[in-house]
Design a protein around this nucleic acid. Sequence first.
DNA 1: TAAAAAAGTGCAACGACTCAACTTTTCTAT
DNA 2: ATAGAAAAGTTGAGTCGTTGCACTTTTTTA
Lengths: 189, 189
Amino acid sequence: MGRRERKKAATRQALADAALRLFLDRGFDQVSVRDVAEAADVSTTTVFKHFPSKEALLFDLDSDREAALIAVVRDRPEGMSIPTALREHTLRMHPDGAGDPEMARFVELTESTPALREYGRRMWMRHEAALAAAVAEATGAPEDDPGCAALAHFALETVSFARGRGDARQAIEAAFALLEHGWPAAGQR
Amino acid sequence: MGRRERKKAATRQALADAALRLFLDRGFDQVSVRDVAEAADVSTTTVFKHFPSKEALLFDLDSDREAALIAVVRDRPEGMSIPTALREHTLRMHPDGAGDPEMARFVELTESTPALREYGRRMWMRHEAALAAAVAEATGAPEDDPGCAALAHFALETVSFARGRGDARQAIEAAFALLEHGWPAAGQR
DNA sequence: TAAAAAAGTGCAACGACTCAACTTTTCTAT
DNA sequence: ATAGAAAAGTTGAGTCGTTGCACTTTTTTA
């Protein structure tokens, strides 16, 4: 790895670090890209050579979540339904305040800033096509089967739905119950 | 209605008209707010006194869609399930190229411009809470029941899901079938 | 090793949007 | 009816995110 690539990676890291620190400190909207650039001692243009947008400064660690999602569908235990497997995965991934306080502050920041919420949702929803394909593969349906695509879409949407509700865990469970069993008929309610 | 309010409404209408014409003509990103202001013979700042954003210039006719949504749930025919009623409503509202060509061009514009797609979705999703309350009311569940909220969320998401898929009608039907009957068990697939 | 290609950096600019001030219109108290 | 206050419309100057163009630096190629 040449000196050039090392310096590039260092600059990128310095930018991400400075951004995280400043955003947590003052709030996303109270920090300008110029501030971040200055804190990392580069020009504002350089920021956008490393990151496609201001929001992207925060969502740097974004890889192999798609792979995990697909593996959950493909490698689920014998007899477990796809919605159940996805529900367990979603609940497992969901950041309950239990983790370190740094993470808690990060989650609080992203959920309370509209631009970040929206960006996070878009990033998450990018996996819809891949997940739909995995579901189709697992059930033997045609690759672009609309039912599989709908399940993929709604399963991913679940985390967006859980946001802003009081009890996120309960919301996720209710949403997946609907996907698994459908809307209860009038008699059984 | 005084002269003042009339003039205000006239300016607002002139802005919306100019915006629609210019956007359809050149495309959303190829028209600046300044262009719209100039076409309506006001300053750019005035535009933002009438509309909260550039996107809002297009989504002016936005009222009583929520009322219709709630009425669909409340006044559905005896014996018709809520998901079915919402499915019929969604299909009925969906703009198939059948209407006037002006509408077709409008739909094409909003669907091909990312900023407009996103904005349209946000506006549409604003009705989630009201729809969830209507569903809870209709089933006798507590007002903030997570299952009712999930149905409302997913039912609205349906149109977002149908976007970008080849056959929108088929997509909507598949999505509502999932909400109505749940994910088919392994045996019946 | 020179030249050329590629990549990093920065200045200046554009477009969306806001702020503080100014003007005009409407309301209210005499 | 009218002066003065309050409300609302309008504006020019500025901020912030983001991009095009020019320049420097590093790597590759002849």
